[in-house]
Write a protein that binds this DNA or RNA. Structure first.
Lengths: 259, 259
DNA sequence: GACTAATTACTGGTCAGACCAATGCACCAC
DNA sequence: GTGGTGCATTGGTCTGACCAGTAATTAGTC
């Protein structure tokens, strides 16, 4: 592959230029969080710079916390923890279940927008990735037998992530990501319960299918609608679960025993 | 002058080691703020490392804002010591204007929902607070004369915050807050410009009045609509501003040439 | 066949030396 | 003095080599 020269931004040295270009590639979703970047030597060829400059460029990204480098392994795009993930408030949310539904409310909003944009802006590459994630999830879910709930949750998450990434709005992706992480960290046990019960699982599966269909066929409004319903359903299921949980709690069982 | 080998800190690579040693020298007062460091080649001899590693070390210090380097001149110890680290996300979004509009897109969504919920859920106490913030802002804005833009921006922010708090969704409030901080940190200068131009200010004032009215009177749909329009307007204004900014940049000298 | 150890083909980390480009000072002509 | 001019010095970049971890593959062993 030939060197791909791109006009230098005036006033920018080579390393800064390299860093900027790589950042752009990350923002464009070419390199995604968690993904391994090409090797330094490959990037040199690709960007048409020496390894010294390339390495200084990577050093910039490392300083910013954007990539993470390990000798003998490579550089991976850091999993961005956006929007004050370490703020005291977030910790507060974590320990207080009553914020759970507030969280779901915001998440529904973002998830709906995400689905809408994915349907309207998604490229063919995005659609391929979304479908792939969907199939992995659906196949596993239908394989019946004894399913590993944790694994299913991961596949579920990957599917939704793929959809959000197709929105091509990195801010939206990262915000949604952080809210989802927050959600799972607080009620992962409950979510697991949802998968165990047959009725909720069937509903979730059906909604996933609808969401997939709407996004792939580019029906923006439909996609948003389905996503909203999906979150509404989950919220309702969690509400029911909580109710039941409280009933149990009243009979002297403690929350912690379920986590 | 002979090479001065010093025991490597375990787990630290050469560049980090170099950066650490130089930082220590600066803290010890060997190199003082404003002072010119020895040349790279001299530092290489002195520290017993290659220029590549030395340069990566300097790159670290530069990223932290500890030194300032000019070609053909040298590296000087910065007079302003680092102001405080920022999140990786901030770094990534800062230099990329295109993420600005992604950010605004998400913010519009949240701001709309926030206004809607404020109108439908807001209590009488919320309404009193919102009105108070609104009056403080509006009074100051109408006092004409020479207004302190920064103060107006604070009042503006306080008003929007009061509205979002009336949504009674702490997650929404916090997420919105984070995004707003992020926004202001990257384009505060531009936002200031908006307040300076008479036409945008008039439009913003009018939209604030409408938003206040809708929220107070409990017209949820109307409130959401106004909030969305508000953000859309601001986005458009920033787009125009950016365009003009680029035009100026193209037709004149770059800032760096004046430094 | 299954498990373990050596091999090997990567990866990033560091080094040396060369040349380019901007800076700034000393020198010189006017 | 004033304004060029040249040159030594600075940072910026490139090349190619070698060192040092990593991980997958292979060979060897039980």
């Amino acid at each position: 592959m030939p060197a791909e020269h791109q006009a230098l931004t005036p006033g920018q040295r080579m390393p800064e230029h390299v860093a900027t270009r790589l950042e752009r590639l990350i923002l464009d979703g070419v390199f995604r969080p968690g993904q391994l970047l090409p090797s330094e030597r490959r990037l040199c060829d690709r960007l048409g710079v020496s390894r010294a400059s390339l390495r200084e460029g990577l050093r910039i990204l490392r300083s910013k916390g954007i990539i993470d480098t390990r000798q003998g392994h490579g550089s991976t795009v850091a999993t961005l923890l956006p929007v004050g993930s370490q703020s005291p408030l977030m910790h507060l949310f974590k320990d207080h279940p009553r914020t759970l539904f507030d969280l779901l409310e915001v998440r529904a909003l973002l998830e709906g927008e995400s689905a809408r944009l994915a349907a309207s802006r998604g490229t063919s590459v995005d659609r391929v990735l979304i479908t792939r994630r969907y199939r992995e999830m659906a196949d596993y879910a239908e394989s019946a037998d004894t399913i590993d709930v944790e694994r299913l949750a991961r596949l579920d998450h990957a599917f939704h992530l793929a959809v959000s990434q197709a929105s091509h709005n990195p801010v939206l992706v990262h915000t949604l990501q952080s809210l989802t992480d927050l959600l799972l960290s607080s009620v992962f046990a409950s979510v697991k319960h949802l998968y165990h019960l047959p009725a909720p699982r069937a509903m979730i599966n059906q909604q996933h299918a609808q969401l997939h269909e709407a996004v792939i066929s580019g029906e923006a409004e439909q996609a948003e609608q389905v996503a909203l319903e999906h979150l509404t359903s989950i919220t309702q299921l969690l509400r029911d679960l909580e109710e039941e949980h409280e009933r149990l709690e009243r009979s002297s069982m403690r929350l912690e025993e379920w986590l």
